[in-house]
């Protein structure tokens, strides 16, 4: 069972400090949403996201994952905005009562390009960053270990609970539970499926908290981390640079009166 999307490779991108990648991602998102020009998003894709994906070696998985998420969104966005944009006057294609306006398409392009950047860059981060490393890096920077615990355990326990839900379903079918029937019957059969899952979850939470205490989770000592998080002066400078760029991106449209 693979519980995360992490694509285990050894590229430079994979080896970057997770915080560097996280700040880069945030800076990119802030920039594209602050500057309302579709070609800015386009430039970021061509100059940043694509090269990073190629270097990481995870480009193929990035493409297949993103397409699955983006295709339906883009289709809906362009169809709906292209057809119904309220300020649309310039009709470029007409069929019956359907008018496709260039204003609508441009608006869709503006929104769409940002969503594409957001999705591509986020998935690239997830593919190239082991969630455990991200948690270690954030804990090292002062994030509460309890908060880090909640995030990482949620990431892993959800697939574990899904496995258990599958087992319960099989166990009840083996006792003659038929999944066919009308909606009312389907609601009725939820009880034997959900009840063991929920009861089991309560027992688990209680037991696990005991087990975690036994492993000094309540300790007040300053925590250490087994896995060292790679870092360098270059990355430290880069992180500040990203922050400055993001701030500049927020300031530019205001200064230029673009908004």
């Amino acid at each position: 069972m693979s519980s995360t999307l992490f694509d285990n490779r050894k590229s430079v991108i994979h080896r970057l400090n997770p915080v560097t990648k996280l700040i880069a991602l945030l800076a990119i998102i802030v920039t594209v949403f602050a500057i309302p020009l579709w070609w800015v998003a386009g430039l970021i894709i061509v100059l940043v996201v694509v090269p990073a994906a190629v270097i990481s070696g995870s480009g193929g998985r990035l493409l297949s994952l993103s397409l699955r998420i983006l295709l339906p969104i883009m289709l809906v966005l362009f169809i709906v905005q292209g057809l119904t944009f309220p300020g649309g006057k310039t009709i470029i294609w007409q069929w019956g009562i359907i008018d496709v306006t260039s204003e609508g398409l441009l608006f869709a392009l503006g929104i769409g390009s940002r969503i594409i950047v957001l999705v591509l860059a986020s998935i690239l981060l997830v593919l190239t960053t082991h969630p455990g490393d991200l948690m270690s890096a954030l804990t090292e920077r002062g994030m509460s270990p309890k908060f880090a615990y909640i995030i990482s355990s949620t990431l892993q326990l959800i697939p574990a609970f899904k496995d258990r839900a599958d087992s319960i379903l099989l166990a009840q079918q083996a006792r003659g539970l038929s999944l066919k029937g009308n909606p009312l019957r389907r609601i009725k059969i939820m009880l034997p499926l959900l009840s063991p899952l929920v009861l089991g979850m309560f027992t688990d939470v209680e037991e696990r908290s005991t087990a975690m205490e036994a492993r000094a989770f309540g300790s007040t000592a300053r925590r250490t981390s087994l896995i060292p998080v790679a870092d360098s002066m270059v990355q430290r400078i880069a992180r500040w640079l990203f922050i400055v760029l993001a701030l500049a991106a927020v300031a530019t449209p205001i200064l230029l009166g673009l908004l």
């Binding site: 082991h130 615990y149 892993q156 000094a216």
Partner: peptide, 24 residues
Amino acid sequence: FNQISGAKFTVREELAFGLENLGV
């Protein structure tokens, strides 16, 4: 199943979990 923290992604880190808490 419940003795495993759920917070760690490899057995190596899982074993170290308690020691990390103690600041070893």
